[in-house]
Structure formats: C-alpha cells, structure tokens
Design a binder for these strands. Structure first.
Lengths: 154, 154
DNA sequence: TGACAATAATAGCCTTGACAATGATAGCCT
DNA sequence: AGGCTATCATTGTCAAGGCTATTATTGTCA
C-alpha cells in the first residue's frame, strides 16, 4: 500500500496542487496590488501586497524586528532590508537599534502606518472574500488547515 | 446573513488563506528547485521549478506555441519570450515559425527535452507528495478543487 | 581573556517576472 | 485593395527576491 498522493500514472503537472497554488497566489497578489493602488486613501503610499503583509505583521504585534519579520513570513533577509527601506521612505514604519542587543533593528509602525493599516486590512479582506466566493465557512477553514499542514510538512 | 468568509472582527492577515498560500508556494518552489538541482541527470540543465512547468505543458501536449503556454499557465508574454530563450539555449526546446500563421512561434521539445522530462516529473511529484504527507486522497482532491474554484473566481 | 562559532542586518550581484511600447501578421468589413 | 482592429512575439525598463559575502555584535568555551 502507498500513502502517496500522486503517482507516475495519474500525476499531471498542470493540474497539480503545486501549479494551481502558484497561479492562485499570483492572481491574488495582482488583485490586491490593484485594490491597494485604487483606494483613494492608500494610493499615495503605493503599497504592494507584499508590503501589506509586513505592515500587518507589525500591526498585529507578531514581530518587532527585521529577523522576526523574516521568520514570521518566510522572507529573505536581504530582501527584508530593502523592503524596510521602502516602507521607511514612505513614512509607514521606523527603524530603531535595539538597546540590549545592538545587532537587532527594532521596527515599529509610525503614526501614519497605524492609521493606514485598517484600510489596507479592509482591502486585503475584500480580495480574499472575492476569491473565496461560493465557499462555505467550513470549506474555508478546511483550506486554511490544508495549507498549515503543508507548511508543517516543509 | 452574509456570504463573506472573513469579516473585520475575525480576519488575521497572517493566518489567512492569502498569506498561507504565499508561504506554501514559496516553500514548494524552493524545494523543487533544490530537488532539480540535486538530481544527477538534471543538474547540468539547471532547470528551475518555473521552467519545469513550461516543459511539462509541452510534454503533455497542452500547448505548442508561446501564447498557448502563456494562457495555459498564466504567465506574462514578455517573460515567456525570455523563458523560451533560456530553455532553448539549454537545448531542451526548439522554436519554429508556424507556416500557416506567421505570428505564431511553435515550440516543441527537443529529443533531449523529451528524455529529461520523466526525471523532472519524478522530482516534482516527489516534492508534492512530501508536502502532502498525511493527506488522504480525498483531501488532496478537495484541495485541488478549492484551488480551481478560486481561479475561477478571479 | 582570547579564539571561535552563531546571529543580525546589510550590500552587491544576478535572475526573473510585470508592464508598456513596438512591429509583424491575420481577420474582417466595406 | 485599403483601413481598422486584434493577436502574437519581442524588446526595454523597472521592481523585487534569492544568494553570497561582509560587518558588527553576541555568546560560548577553553
């Protein structure tokens, strides 16, 4: 007996979970980029979907340093430095060297960042709900659980 | 009553389907890149996860021109031109102007490409099966169906 | 104390995808 | 045939992530 999901006979790359997920992710990010760019209050920040994820992590108190952000959202450290550059130059976040461990750079939202977050959150939520149109609550929870299980398998 | 999945009270960006899917996708692509790079037969081609998807589409007869590839896998046309450049320079595929419609460029696998494909397919399948460890067949089919429904909603 | 490994942020280089503009071709319509 | 529009591939440009040093700092251990 086998516990494998795909086997050599039935596996069709283009219909597989891997490829499908790639397409859905790309579509969702593009949709969120568009949404954030179209919003009257947010357009001036030109914030992208990826940037929103960082801001959200800070706003929800899930991270307060660059390295924590990297771990929390699975993001490259070098890319994070520049991501922080961008958000800082937009006035949405602020850097501050940690006093205890001077290797660390603490990151916090600025007043402007805190103000803008709820609107961004609203946009992101709207996009997700659009993509999940026709899903029951149960199905959505199940999808979340599937994704979490895949993450744990990695 | 509401048909919305997420609402302002319960929506947590980092736990949402959007962010989770982004992380899973990134992890899967990285894993497949590593797998393809480690395989003795395939390493010399230095083929990436994204490139595999193109080769697979050709091998499965799901596309035979650049534009069909773009549509089939939701890929930018400009990016596809250069993707084809790369694969062609590796000797895995071949370009040929279509005789009937000279706007079209037909793409076909070379002998080398056809030979290499089964091994790539094997790698990709292995990665997917690893990420889907612990899933029942039903759950996997359900996940595929969820993703397809999201694509249709976009 | 000093050598050495581990961690954090950063900078440089390279790859690659997205977007817009361009040129060639095809289909349609009159 | 001529004009209009759509489609296809290509190119240039730009933005962003991945990888690999590099530097500063911390912790460990002899």
């Amino acid at each position: 007996m086998s516990t494998e999901i795909y086997d050599a006979n039935t596996y069709e790359p283009r219909k597989s979970v891997g490829h499908l997920m790639n397409r859905v992710r790309t579509a969702m990010f593009a949709a969120l980029d568009a949404e954030l760019g179209a919003d009257t209050d947010l357009a001036r920040f030109e914030v992208s979907a990826a940037q929103f994820v960082v801001i959200a992590s800070l706003a929800m108190g899930e991270a307060d340093s660059a390295s924590q952000l990297c771990k929390g959202i699975s993001y490259d450290a070098g890319a994070m430095t520049r991501m922080i550059d961008r958000l800082e130059s937009k006035g949405l976040i602020r850097r501050r060297r940690d006093a205890d461990d001077r290797r660390l750079v603490n990151i916090e939202l600025t007043e402007q960042g805190r103000e803008a977050f709820p609107k961004m959150r609203q946009c992101a939520m709207g996009v997700l709900n659009r993509f999940l149109r026709g899903f029951t609550q149960n199905e959505a929870r199940q999808l979340e659980s599937f994704l979490n299980r895949m993450l744990e398998n990695s």
